[in-house]
Design a protein around this nucleic acid. Sequence first.
DNA 1: AATGAATGAGCCTTCATTCAT
DNA 2: GATGAATGAAGGCTCATTCAT
Lengths: 224, 224, 224, 224
Amino acid sequence: MVDDPTKQRLIEAAGEEFAARGFEGATIRSISKRAGTNIAAVNYHFGDKEGLYAAALIEAHRCGQQEGDETEVTDAPPAEMIRRFIHRFITNIKRDAAGSWQTAMMHREMIEPTKAADILVRESIRPRFERLRAAVAALCPDADDRRVNALSFSIVGQCLHYKVAHPISVRLIGDDAYKSLDVEFITEHISRFCLAALGVAAPFGAGERESLDAGEEARCTGSR
Amino acid sequence: MVDDPTKQRLIEAAGEEFAARGFEGATIRSISKRAGTNIAAVNYHFGDKEGLYAAALIEAHRCGQQEGDETEVTDAPPAEMIRRFIHRFITNIKRDAAGSWQTAMMHREMIEPTKAADILVRESIRPRFERLRAAVAALCPDADDRRVNALSFSIVGQCLHYKVAHPISVRLIGDDAYKSLDVEFITEHISRFCLAALGVAAPFGAGERESLDAGEEARCTGSR
Amino acid sequence: MVDDPTKQRLIEAAGEEFAARGFEGATIRSISKRAGTNIAAVNYHFGDKEGLYAAALIEAHRCGQQEGDETEVTDAPPAEMIRRFIHRFITNIKRDAAGSWQTAMMHREMIEPTKAADILVRESIRPRFERLRAAVAALCPDADDRRVNALSFSIVGQCLHYKVAHPISVRLIGDDAYKSLDVEFITEHISRFCLAALGVAAPFGAGERESLDAGEEARCTGSR
Amino acid sequence: MVDDPTKQRLIEAAGEEFAARGFEGATIRSISKRAGTNIAAVNYHFGDKEGLYAAALIEAHRCGQQEGDETEVTDAPPAEMIRRFIHRFITNIKRDAAGSWQTAMMHREMIEPTKAADILVRESIRPRFERLRAAVAALCPDADDRRVNALSFSIVGQCLHYKVAHPISVRLIGDDAYKSLDVEFITEHISRFCLAALGVAAPFGAGERESLDAGEEARCTGSR
DNA sequence: AATGAATGAGCCTTCATTCAT
DNA sequence: GATGAATGAAGGCTCATTCAT
């Protein structure tokens, strides 16, 4: 956004450190060093460590906003909305591992919120959650608020699990097995799991053989 | 188990602090104070901070083991096994908030593992996960390993979400709405969500009315 | 004197901060902010913090000079000179509390001199002290230099005490009792105390009953 | 008191630094270095810098207490009590210059009180001040509270001036002249000044030769 | 002339650890 | 065996100053 002044370099460096080590774990010394500036620059530009954290979090949210809206805003049938929500969620998570600190910071904030969490909830999380809720409610007209919340949490929980439990999962099923769970597979899996639970896709398990194939499924959701 | 009162008091105090503040956040000063012992006692009994952490984690796992096995070991149909798994998971999570540090420590280790995680995975997590996998595999005979892992993660993810995303969820849907999601409701909800996805329970949503009737469901689970 | 508004605003702001917090305690950040200018302006206009302090001190002295001379220069009998000296001293001290930084800075310099003290002594303190010495010497023709110095210090010391020991005095005798010691009372008290010690007024204590009343005393000193 | 452990060395070093540079001016680095210990020892023994300051102040007060009481407690006529008060005050002040930090710290606290001032007022200053007040009141039976306070302040002010205004006084009258004001001379001078003002000693000035009775004094001042 | 940006030194504090008794 | 005392490393922050524009 801004050319490449100290302030921007500082945010970039802070984002990487905060994403990797958390608020407590990161040190402004290391951040300053990485940004190639003096320690005091943090105080000058952001007041203190918390200010820098908030700035990085806002930047992270701002970056995510740009690319996101175009694909989500478009009208689509509820089942498709849910599928896109999951796809986007999983894609972001997998991108974290590749070094993008923006979503990593936001995920960290979900798990271990700081004072800055309120901003994030208001600006970023709630709008998306509401869209998910709406899609879920459209598929379950008889569900009350409590049920819709629980259903939405069931969807989010499955996605977030690949962020949250990543290190343990690797130890649990082995590195190779975990790597085989790539973005496409997980997206397809969670989508089908959820849509099956919502009654608009074929379930796994016993009914698997006589399940709707991909084409039928699409038609099915499209028919609503 | 340990008969040394000082050592035991130290573990108890450490467990509470570590569960509440994490490994980095907890200080041996505060732990020693709470245990009513000297700071140096930690290093004397456990070598260093990490040693104390490992000791507390093992103790946490040991406690969980005692009560758990009796209910889970009993043979039961796969769907019932899954239901019990979920019930137990959610119960533990909700108990954390009431001040039990044992499961709180283990959950923390799932999210942000330390060096001690290997022990925990080997001793506690893997055995339970394998039982879950077995139940899932029994319901989905045609599923390959990758699919069974993903299905198991879908189940675990929904449960763990109530631990991991608790603070954000409260901000998201409000305190009252979150409180209405009690143990019984969540257990019932996740169980049905998963079993529906696995084709052995009625789905939510549009298919709710024309769901599999009770007879089919029973036959389905019973037939394996 | 200085027509540059920025420079003047800076001096004003610096005076208030230095008077309130001392040289070490005041920060150029806070001064700049109060003056509505940039931090670098201090170094630009005054070289460094010390330069700004010196400038403020000189301004403080310059202000005091204006109003002062007219009343003191006038010839008067020695006892009246001393009374006026005391009155002026106490008035200035009490004015400090009301927010006038000019004398507050000078008083502070008396108690805890900086490098700039030499200027102050030469320009402001010594001239007044010499006038006091002269008045004392006039009343004590036989006193040698050492005695005259000591006598002058006795007078100054009593006045300065209300500046220096203010915070402790309040804690010592209570807020109300200290407030009852207003400018008029203190001036009258110290004047009589000193003039009695110099043999030109009735002493307190045992001789109080047969002392000269206020009218006689005034007439007495006025007659010279 | 204690042999010579780190704690005591730290208090000693702190006292010297605080007395010389004040609370803000002194650094725990320099104190630790002077005491030959680590910086962290301050935190261990005294919590923080303020704790160390308080400890040093209490030690200063404790030292002063020891020697003082024996000479002051003895019953004596009021005039003699006042003379002793002055002598003790001046002696302490002059000892400061020789490097004793104990009274220097207490004097600093009088001039620029910190949070610890309350303790000092209660424990050390008020008891002595009350003894002075009692002596003054005994000499001035008709004086009300306000007057007794003012009289006491007049005595204290003259003494404290040799502490407070020391640096300025040197610049004012020169080094040699100031040195000639030794303990004996100042004590004698202030004592006589005060007692003359209280009507129990011969005044300076015109009445110096023919010491006081009321008639002569009146005539004396009138005759000028 | 005037300023936003940046700097390096220094401060107090906290922490886990080790040592001598 | 157990502990009070002491340590060194590191962290966040503040300050007066300087630089480039």
